[in-house]
Design a protein around this nucleic acid. Structure first.
Length: 187
DNA sequence: TTCCCGATTTACT
DNA sequence: GTAAATCGGGAAA
């Protein structure tokens, strides 16, 4: 497993970058699925207009983000897609890292079934909504540990290319904050 | 309670 | 390239 101290690093950018190349697994409905994280985005709590916790907003939904790092934050977007985040930072600091894409390594058959696809292609786990769907993640997994029996993150032996940073996707509404290089992906 | 909108994906024109 | 799908949460009243 990954030590809790990794997730509780106050530098959310370092955690987002560090998660690239880690392995993400779920075991939901008795089916093991997982892959290597290839793309993430950082959401810097109260100072980041793209974050749900911007300006200290604290509600029933965002409450989980204020907890200590090392747990999940799952939420429904556009009424259709579930997005998976890793909560980071110490308790009281609502930082989170959105997992945007993985490279599938385990349970590909199950993931194809969940996505209702017949052949393996790049879209299977490429994109935050698609990834959560393939892994079987939904709101039931909000706020659970990232070292639980149903959902966990581990080290990986797989070598990825150089990590590059760039602006985030789909957050144009965040004004100047949308331009911040908070997105990390393996080349 | 009511109204409005979104950290996206997919299917069309 | 553009639009529709679809529902929980946040803000207003």
């Amino acid at each position: 497993m990954i030590p809790l101290s990794f997730f509780r690093n106050p530098d959310v950018l370092a955690v987002a970058k560090g998660l690239i190349g880690k392995a993400l697994f779920t075991k939901i409905d008795g089916k093991l699925t997982g892959g290597v994280i290839t793309e993430t985005e950082a959401y810097a709590g109260i100072i980041d207009r793209a974050s749900h916790a911007y300006n200290g907003r604290r509600t029933a939904r965002t409450e989980v983000m204020y907890q200590a790092g090392g747990i999940s934050y799952v939420y429904l977007c556009y009424g259709i897609h579930h997005l998976l985040n890793a909560v980071t930072g110490e308790e009281g600091t609502p930082h989170a890292v959105l997992i945007r894409a993985i490279h599938p390594t385990h349970g590909i058959e199950t993931m194809l079934e969940r996505r209702k696809k017949k052949t393996l292609d790049l879209t299977l786990t490429n994109g935050p909504g698609a990834l959560a769907a393939a892994l079987g993640i939904d709101l039931k997994h909000n706020g659970i540990s990232l070292n639980s029996k149903e959902l966990w993150i581990a080290e990986s032996d797989i070598q990825l290319g150089q990590i590059v940073a760039g602006p985030r996707i789909g957050v144009d509404y965040a004004g100047p904050d949308a331009l911040l290089p908070y997105r990390f992906l393996a080349k």
